[in-house]
């Protein structure tokens, strides 16, 4: 059986475009982010350094996001996950760390449009102004009552992830919040 995403290709075009981002490889890495061994692991996998607090570093090979003081999210191609996990485990062996494949435990949305900040603001208490949430910074917060993380990749594009089990609900929520005629024009 081949893998499918929770959203299974869902698409909606209202005030913003909401799209299933497709199969994306996601690895949670927990450990001491200040340690040399974590730096070495990231350098090996993506050729990057550990991102600063709340930042996401992107390369053509993939991205790595700072999720908490001891947690990173490595985003790579879906097919590479098991290979990357084994090399991470090799490098991190012996250190107090955890590497887990969460690719199929999350739903990922690709949002496009000028009104993304307004649409998300309808359901999250996070400050979405450009000063507080600039491009390349990850914000973990909630939409309605569900945990989400989102970050802007450019002025009009945003990636949003949530737990897989609530992916369909978040899709419906986003569709509703981005209905034409409900513009806020704040951000």
């Amino acid at each position: 059986m081949s893998s499918i995403t929770a959203l299974n290709g869902a698409f909606h075009n209202g005030m913003i475009e909401i799209k299933d981002a497709g199969l994306i490889g996601m690895i949670t890495l927990r450990g001491d982010l200040k340690s040399e061994v974590v730096a070495k692991a990231l350098n090996f996998v993506l050729g990057v350094t550990v991102p600063d607090q709340r930042k996401i570093t992107s390369t053509p090979k993939g991205s790595v996001a700072w999720m908490s003081p001891d947690e990173l999210l490595i985003i790579i191609e879906y097919k590479d996950v098991s290979k990357v996990i084994s090399s991470l485990n090799n490098i991190l062996s012996g250190s107090h760390s955890l590497v887990v494949d969460v690719s199929d435990a999350r739903a990922v949305f690709a949002l496009t449009g000028n009104a993304i900040r307004d649409v998300l603001s309808k359901g999250t208490p996070a400050d979405l102004s450009k000063d507080v949430l600039p491009i390349g910074e990850v914000r973990r917060s909630r939409i309605a009552q569900l945990a989400v993380a989102f970050w802007f990749t450019d002025e009009i594009s945003c990636q949003l992830i949530c737990f897989r089990s609530v992916g369909a609900y978040i899709m419906e929520w986003l569709k509703n919040a981005s209905e034409n005629g409900s513009e806020v024009n704040f951000h």
Partner: peptide
């Protein structure tokens, strides 16, 4: 103090 975000009560 862990992530530097000024969070609303409902995020906490």
């Amino acid at each position: 103090p862990n992530c530097g975000i000024t969070a609303d009560e409902t995020d906490l």
